[in-house]
Amino acid sequence: MHPASLTMAASNWTTPHPSTFILLGVPGLEAAHVWISIPFCSVYILSLLRNCLLLAVIKTEPSLHEPMYLFLAMLAFADLVISTAAMPKTLCIFWFRDQAIHIDACLIQIFLIHSLHTMESGFMLAMAFDRYVAICNPLRHSAILTHQAIAKIGLVVVVRGIMLLGPHPFLLKQLPYCGTHVISHTYCEFMALAKLACVDTTVISAYSLAIAFFTGGLDFILIVLSYILILRAVFSLPSKQARRKSLSTCSSHVCVMLVFYTPAIFTFLSHRFGHVAPHIHILIANIYLLLPPMMNPLIYGVRTPGIRQSVLHILGLKPA
């Protein structure tokens, strides 16, 4: 069936609890879907290859079994799941005009994307804590961040993401959708689905906003505070070389945070408070899903000698 016919049929449904929704892709740019799919697919493949390689390197190289790299491995695994939760369906929309998505698949997609983004934020906070201990209390670093402590921190981050974001799909499934069942997006997103409900969703939206603040927002504030303490400790060092070395150990983490939080904050604020053109919002939302998973392994691979040398060894190349 032609996409326009699908959209018209979906708009005329009156079932308050539909079994299927229609994903439009990028409204207004339907004619360019095939061209848009080229960079999307390329970035997705690069993300898969780079994160799998990073996980393999960290697993096989004993010298990388340190807190920062173990937290990085958790981040890489979350990146893999997030991009895979959304991108295959997006490419099906672009290539085959397969716009229909079952409500259960839609809700699973929402849960995976939102919960794993919350987990990623937690892993970045854990990495900031690792840098804080390594620089501000280096003599106790190995005693504080033991493998058991790392496992507990990782478990807390995962449980927090599941517990706080778990109610989202259940809340959405209970809503009546007596109007259109068309989602103007490439993947299912909490606010995009909530806006289709024919009841007042102020309470649900407020709950989602509160969860976003008390996870990503609070994590970001704590990360900033940790780096204020780190910078204060670094600039109190007597040697310029020591200051430069300490700052270089944090530079990769700072770059990863910028790549993660910049599009995340823009997407979050524009969806709730801004008036951004729909296609711009959707493209940035997809960049938010695709860019960090592609860039994180590259940033750490280029800036971390241990990872860089291990990657070159696996690929059979000699270090420059």
Rank of each mutant, 00 (worst) to 15 (best):
Ser208Lys: 00
Cys178Gly: 14
Leu171Lys: 15
Ala197Asp: 03
Leu175Ile: 11
Gln174Ile: 11
Ile211Arg: 00
Ala206Gln: 09
Thr202Trp: 07
Asp200Gly: 02
Lys173Arg: 15
Ala206Ile: 01
Asp200Asn: 08
Glu189Arg: 03
Ile204Met: 14
Leu172Ile: 03
Cys188Thr: 07
Pro169Cys: 12
Ser205Trp: 00
Lys173Asp: 15
Leu196Cys: 05
Ala210Gln: 07
His181Thr: 12
Tyr207Gln: 07
Ile183Trp: 03
Cys188Arg: 00
His181Ile: 06
Ile204Asp: 03
Val199Phe: 04
Lys195Gly: 00
Gln174Trp: 13
Tyr177Met: 13
Leu175Gly: 07
Ile204Ala: 05
Thr201Met: 02
Ala197Ser: 06
Pro176Gly: 06
Pro169Lys: 10
Glu189Met: 05
Thr180Cys: 12
Phe190Trp: 06
Leu172His: 02
Lys173Gln: 15
Thr201Phe: 01
Val199Lys: 03
Leu175Arg: 07
Ser205Val: 13
Gly179Trp: 09
Val203Met: 10
Thr201Cys: 10
Cys198Val: 02
Val199Trp: 04
Val203Leu: 08
Cys198Tyr: 03
Ala192Cys: 09
Val199His: 06
Val182His: 13
Ser184Arg: 11
Cys178Ile: 04
Pro176Ala: 05
Ile183Ser: 02
Pro176His: 04
Cys178Glu: 14
Val182Ser: 12
Ser205Phe: 02
Gln174Asp: 15
Asp200Ser: 04
Lys195Arg: 15
Ala197His: 02
Thr201Val: 07
Pro169Met: 10
Ser205Ile: 09
Val199Ala: 03
Leu209Gly: 00
Lys195Leu: 09
